[in-house]
Design a protein around this nucleic acid. Structure first.
Lengths: 189, 189
DNA sequence: TGCGTCTTCCTAAAGGTATTAGGCAAACCG
DNA sequence: CGGTTTGCCTAATACCTTTAGGAAGACGCA
């Protein structure tokens, strides 16, 4: 009997694909074992448990997302940067809904601190340097952006905007426009 | 052996409490049976299945939320109304995290059309009458509000704003302020 | 009050997921 | 080429879901 060649790496990658296909909360150790044509127990040499699998998929997604964002932000500032960053999130969510959901998983503090989530925070701050915001406005703005992006993407992904005019993309542009105005119009006195 | 006096109504209500205590995705037919000190199979006379239970909890939450929102909106307009509606959502999510999560459950179209979700949509439109928005701006604004509220609450609930200054409530006020400005400042030409 | 019916809750059973313990054999390494 | 490591397996336990069919409480009507 030849071995299947399992590694944590491959399992996590396959888990991410599985998530995109069937949804992040349908990602199960059993389904993953099935995909590798291997018995369930075999995975436990490579993954601590089901939660561990989910966490690793989340970390992978955060990395991928941060990489794309960094690429998109390079050489951009102001509204350009804002739209670029936002589009990266939205496109990633469309292309990889399961991974995007994974990226929203709540991580425990140490894990989060060691994750690419930190890079996201840094990029958001960097993005806001294009606008003239002193503390605490900058923090408020970081949270606003997080809320709008996550909220919009989550609603769009859930199909909240389908079957109704105008097109979701128009709303997206509209929102980015207004956000830009909002951020520019609120310079700290 | 006396009977437990189960009804769909009581089960759904208890399910909602359970959701608030342990989280919506931990709501299980088994846990519910345990709570009523009854065998699991007994619940299947009152609930079609696990999904049915979750859907009913979602519908309950949407009703409660719509009732509160309607109360809060009565006699208010403009920014007052905006803040009142937003606060209802946020407070409900704080008091009843499980129910709030339930309210975000994706419902199939017919169920959604018969749910209190419709009232929410109407109230949001009514709320925006205080601002001068013609279509398609009004729809964009509806979507923006949905995104911001859901996004913010979801992040706050996930603990995203704890352990960092400034206080989450300050950000909430700041955001509502800017949203009001944004909506007022964008009258359709 | 008593009889029949309906409903409620039960036992039983099958199938899926998670997790651990312990074994055999493939792969690697000296 | 023998010994050790490691990978994948069998076996077992436990929990959740769902269906089938049975017994006894509750209810209605004479």
């Amino acid at each position: 009997m030849p071995r299947a060649g399992l590694t944590t790496e491959r399992l996590v990658r396959a888990g991410a694909e599985l998530a995109d296909e069937v949804g992040f909360d349908q990602v199960t150790v059993s389904a993953l074992a099935r995909r590798f044509d291997v018995k369930v127990a075999s995975l436990y040499s490579h993954l601590r448990n089901s939660q561990d699998l989910r966490t690793r998929i989340a970390l992978l997604a955060l990395e991928e997302l941060a990489d794309r964002a960094a690429d998109a932000l390079a050489g951009r500032a102001g509204k350009d940067a804002l739209a670029a960053y936002a589009d990266v999130l939205r496109d990633y969510a469309r292309d990889h809904p399961g991974r995007y959901a994974a990226a929203r998983l709540r991580l425990d503090p140490e894990t989060a601190a060691a994750s690419a989530g930190v890079r996201h925070a840094q990029m958001t701050r960097a993005l806001l340097r294009g606008y003239d915001l002193a503390e605490p406005d900058q923090t408020h703005a970081v949270r606003l952006l997080g809320s709008v992006f996550h909220g919009y993407i989550s609603l769009e992904l859930a199909g909240g905007f389908s079957h109704s005019a105008p097109d979701a993309s128009e709303t997206w542009t509209w929102i980015l426009d207004r956000l830009d105005t909002l951020l520019r119009g609120a310079p700290t006195p």
